[in-house]
Design a protein around this nucleic acid. Sequence first.
DNA 1: AGCGCATGTGTCATCGTTGACATATAGATC
DNA 2: GATCTATATGTCAACGATGACACATGCGCT
Lengths: 351, 351
Amino acid sequence: MASKSATLIEVAKLAGVSTATVNRVLKQQGYISEEAREKVLAAVAATNYRPNVVARNLRTQRSQTIGLMLTAITVNPFFVGVAHAVEAAAIAAGYRVVIFNHGGSDSYERHGVETFIAQRVDAVLFCTAANPANVELLAGAGIPAIEIERSLTETARFVRVNNYVGARAAIDHLVGLGHRRIAFVGGDPALYPQDAARRRSVEEDRLAAYRDGMAAHGLDLQADYVRLGQYYDLASDGSGAEGRAHAEALLSLPTPPTAIFATCDILAVGVLQALYKAGKKVPHDLSVVGFDDTLAPYLAPQLTTVAQPIAELGRQGFEMARAAIDKRDMQGEVVLDAGLVIRQSTGPAPG
Amino acid sequence: MASKSATLIEVAKLAGVSTATVNRVLKQQGYISEEAREKVLAAVAATNYRPNVVARNLRTQRSQTIGLMLTAITVNPFFVGVAHAVEAAAIAAGYRVVIFNHGGSDSYERHGVETFIAQRVDAVLFCTAANPANVELLAGAGIPAIEIERSLTETARFVRVNNYVGARAAIDHLVGLGHRRIAFVGGDPALYPQDAARRRSVEEDRLAAYRDGMAAHGLDLQADYVRLGQYYDLASDGSGAEGRAHAEALLSLPTPPTAIFATCDILAVGVLQALYKAGKKVPHDLSVVGFDDTLAPYLAPQLTTVAQPIAELGRQGFEMARAAIDKRDMQGEVVLDAGLVIRQSTGPAPG
DNA sequence: AGCGCATGTGTCATCGTTGACATATAGATC
DNA sequence: GATCTATATGTCAACGATGACACATGCGCT
């Protein structure tokens, strides 16, 4: 029918009142007579009026939009989970979310942040930032920034999981099953950006938990069993090549491990693929533990893994953003629990 | 520093020119003297000016935003791929994307569409709509709608893959490997919404290809081998329960099939899980083919599947939206090719 | 000199909503 | 009867960018 929505002015004209009255009726604030209310509501219905959010945002200097900067949503389902949780929380609170994937590129991330600023988003969540400078750009524009999972700045609020405790649970589980030759396949601290505040990074935390866990159980640390690198190639589609290579190397050692702790489910998938190819049965011949709990439903055998509370990370991230927008106080760092989920890929040590 | 970006007026004042001149410099249109250009550019840099997109959108009556209505991004990576492709194309063209997941709920989808209208998005893509009425709401607001993958209306432009040809390739491949007992595990046409224009639906196409393919090769159609239902439970996390149940039923038949064609990778994953649990080796004992090519990199064995050109679906969808926004003519329906990708889950028929 | 055209710049209404402010009436209180 | 308060409504200037329109100036041509 009408190819354009009516405006407030048209509604006011039709109802025979002023725009202020229409506004009061719609906002349910101030004094309105029953008669006026009815006329306005009738006019709203008759014209199929819908408020123009663009005009409102200009007038109120709020966009009711938050920016979400992701690393690569197609590569790791972790980002999908975060995006969905943020979106759900945002919609429930009357906000919109605009998503950007930087794919590891500084300059692309920068472009995204500039777009966010031009849009006057009310806050930006990073999961995770490619370059701290891009996070800090926002401060200059008066827009709060929140970091999820990995923090690169000293200033932005930050929500993450307790990587150390989660990783330690994986080691304890494997040791409890009788494993003594446990390999670690994970992210190399040197390859991933560090926290400006020198908090321990994701990679450092997980690796330290492995080392401490082994030592606590009186087990040797074998350099051969520690394999560090990337979690996945950002340019690819998360094909598991890194995990495959690590597992192949481990299998070709004179004394291969009986268990592999991969600190990302995508690495774990590569490990499973290599084991499948080598004819090893999981968990009969080798046990595998992952980290994140992002792919479990898709795998056979279903993966034992350290579960991140992904939905809660997203929700908390949004809450922090809201608090910052409303200028409410909130603690600068929130740490959530990560706990082991035992499924089918771990079993008693062979022999 | 400045907690607010400068406005055009402030830039103009600083540069000692009018706002029109600043505008001309920034838009690179009309006549500008070199001197004026330099003054303006200097003022822009000095004030760290960034155009206010909200104001621009109000003035130009364009939001440079498109809405993307998805079914459930956390359940099926197919939607992730589409979202990412749409986003990439949109950003390259200077558009933003706002995503909404209806999760199968009519009323939630309706709420999303109303939000899109209030935001004055320039177009909306559905992948896929829950209710045709929600798609048609947009026509009333003068906003073009495009359907991706599945069409429920007669009016919206539509991009999809050739499901019939893709499914037929899967059957031909299995027959070529010597399989004669081929089961079909797929979506029930009765459970999924139909096209108002009575084009053959996704489910009808894939099922027809199976039937025609079997007949073309002179193979019996066994009712036991055709298992129809949902692809996955929208409320869950795509855990493969449906596929597991189908595969277990098929394995318990007096004469089980030697190959299973599952018309969705998530169904195929469930099938693989059931086979794993039953101790069947893939592809030695049974071959499995999926559809979509969304999970291949995560699985062991890597899945032979009918690949949808997901990125191209998203790109084309965006192109259609753009054409509609610019009021350019474009064909109402675009059909892309779906082709088989042979990996590790199919092999010669046993025996 | 007079005209046309290319070049360069400024003015200002407009987009639709908001909310501070002004105004008006009726009833209550002193 | 004067003053105060609660109720009810209207006016209008923002918000910031855009671009149609008007107005210059200078050059070349007849």
